[in-house]
Design a protein around this nucleic acid. Structure first.
Lengths: 232, 232
DNA sequence: TGTGTTTTGTTTGTTGACGAACAAACAAAC
DNA sequence: GTTTGTTTGTTCGTCAACAAACAAAACACA
């Protein structure tokens, strides 16, 4: 619900008067007027609060996330997060959508081009690298997934996210199937579920023990295994 | 640390006077004296509180687990959980060990016998079925894993649990390797990490959406894939 | 065997901090 | 001047933490 309109509201600086914090004169400047529209204000506030919430969850965990701190960490007041999201559970659900929306946005233009099985494996690589390079989001998402089964509001939300992710992978496999790039006796959806599980599970272990888990080695092994089990 | 001595204290009834709740006479009986040893009392209290904590975490999540409710749900007082575990984080760490200890205990005598690749795959099957049949433990464990990366106390504990699990699977693969039952160019530890990831990830998705995830089908696909990618 | 004392396990009272929820005020945009 | 966004004041419940108190078992010694 709150994930519509995240892709805009990015560069609103260009329209506004540049926020003048200080100028040449030593006379105290009156507070600058950004003159943003209501929608812009609202969207920026929402985005900043979600970013703050992601950071808090990633650093200290869901149980230490509070509505008040979320608002303040975003540079607003105590009460704003509660006002926007209503409850902590719904804030957490919004976090999940926020992270996924960010990922989807990034993944467009990511692994384009390559076809066949290698193209599919390339997408998996992108997924893994994406987590590696955005540890905050990864940690927060991991925490949300862990909490989801016991939070009814969240469970539905995350289950939907999972279905979409599985479907995305399954689509990739379907294409390969039609091209004859993978063996014909696989079940795309079951394979996709499995592969998503593998990716998430590996990242979850890596989060807990970055020293002990050689992500490059495991990624290589993972891709090699998939190559063997999927090749026609 | 608290997982030593779980395997005893099971049948302490045989040593004590059988707890007499009522007897033949209609004279009100004085309160029965179970006459348990201090160690027995302590262990039972600990076990019952951990069981209660597992149930609470599985049903409502870690953030709704409180020390007070844990004690009371176990049939004791408000303060006992705090007295034993000191802090919520340490209680949660104890939960993880409790669940793992339970699993390990059950897994002995579980998948014994079969050798070669099929024996290894059989152990994986056991792991999955074990989660399916003990949803409470699975849910609680899943929640703990999700929270671990942001809770320093927990992180170390769970990382150790993971290492043990990976090592267990890797050992199975090593045996297969020596028998020539799997291809020679795999890295047992990396494979084990991957396989554990797959199992956990699939169970995590299943928890969120038991209707949407056909566990039998995915298990079959998973085992078939492993057969293809591991076979010599 | 019994009795008194010490240790260990368990409960209860109390305090203080924190967080959610609500209502009302204030500020900016329309 | 009206709507929409944002802050502030306040209340209420809940939980962790600590400090005693109480109860059961272990021990010592007759």
């Amino acid at each position: 619900m709150s994930s519509t309109g995240i892709q805009q509201a990015e560069n609103n600086m260009s329209r506004n008067q540049p926020t003048r914090i200080a100028d040449d004169s030593n006379v105290p400047v009156q507070v600058p007027r950004p003159r943003r529209t209501h929608a812009e204000r609202r969207e920026e506030a929402e985005r900043r609060m979600l970013d703050a919430a992601v950071r808090i969850v990633a650093e200290r965990g869901i149980d230490y996330l509070t509505l008040a701190e979320c608002g303040e960490a975003a540079g607003y007041s105590r009460g704003l997060a509660a006002h926007y999201f209503g409850s902590k559970d719904r804030l957490v659900a919004a976090i999940a959508n926020h992270i996924v929306a960010n990922y989807v946005q990034r993944s467009r233009g990511g692994s384009r081009g390559r076809k066949g099985l290698e193209g599919f494996l390339n997408a998996i690589d992108f997924y893994i690298e994406s987590g590696r390079s955005r540890v905050l989001e990864l940690r927060a998402f991991n925490a949300v997934i862990g909490a989801a089964p016991t939070h009814p509001d969240l469970a539905a939300e995350i289950a939907a996210v999972n279905r979409e992710s599985v479907q995305g992978l399954a689509n990739g496999l379907e294409i390969c199937l039609k091209q004859g790039a993978v063996r014909a006796d696989i079940d795309p959806k079951a394979q996709a579920t499995m592969i998503l599980a593998m990716i998430r599970g590996v990242m979850s272990q890596w989060l807990l023990d970055p020293e002990g888990i050689d992500l490059d080695k495991i990624k290589a092994e993972l891709l090699a295994s998939l190559r063997r089990s999927l090749a026609p």
